[in-house]
Design a protein around this nucleic acid. Sequence first.
DNA 1: ACTGTATCATTCATATATGAATAATGCTGT
DNA 2: ACAGCATTATTCATATATGAATGATACAGT
Lengths: 134, 134
Amino acid sequence: MNNAVASALVQAAHRVEARLEEALAGVGLSIAKFETLSILVSQDRPIRLSELASKLVCVRSNVTQLVDRLETEGLVKRADDPADRRAVRAEVTALGRKRQAAGTPVVNAVLQDVANKLAAVDAQVLKRALDAVQ
Amino acid sequence: MNNAVASALVQAAHRVEARLEEALAGVGLSIAKFETLSILVSQDRPIRLSELASKLVCVRSNVTQLVDRLETEGLVKRADDPADRRAVRAEVTALGRKRQAAGTPVVNAVLQDVANKLAAVDAQVLKRALDAVQ
DNA sequence: ACTGTATCATTCATATATGAATAATGCTGT
DNA sequence: ACAGCATTATTCATATATGAATGATACAGT
């Protein structure tokens, strides 16, 4: 079957995401929330929501809702952009930093385990091939 | 980085799914709808919604909504199960068959192209590795 | 300076997905 | 026969995602 490899790729990714969701649920996060917090922590400065959308590779209306939920949980705080009155910037709170830090080893453990399961293929070769997909 | 391969896997799969969604949109379908129709066509008999959920690897409430939308579009029809009054069976309509048939080459073209992009790794070896992921 | 266009975040409608709660029906052990 | 448990689909609340429409603000060219 021509389709078999590509289908297997998509299905494997779904299983990985399911594991990540389950693992992150243990520290009160989802993949979307963890990724958002990780960007905010790594930048370590208030980020425009449109910049966040671009880094998350999603549309802005999604970020609006995501930040709504993160703000409700006290993990993120919205602040005006002094340089542009249209813009809103998101900033990670101390609790958000703590939560992201709790999620990191959890995520890494899953990703490491997945990498081990893929050991039949050279990691470098595989990564290059995957990055070449579209 | 330990994470790199597993992350690349998930991201590549997202790109594949985005391509599939875009390609299927051209024939008036989504991935979820195409997969559902494909199951109904391949079985060629009325299927219980719970059986559909099991084949789609999702929860039943999702199937209820999916079949709602498919039924609204006239691609699927609900029918009572004469053997079990709790059950509802879904059946593909003639239009549903036509739509699924239109989607098939579109999906195969994308999957084939993805397989080509993965050609640096032996397809059999890669498939086995991917299937071994959890 | 002003007009038109672009950009920003939000809101709304919708699709996909989960999980809890519910109601109807089926089945098993006594 | 029936009590208790299991199964079925649906509904509801919610999360994640998209895209169109909106309103506010910025900016470019005249």
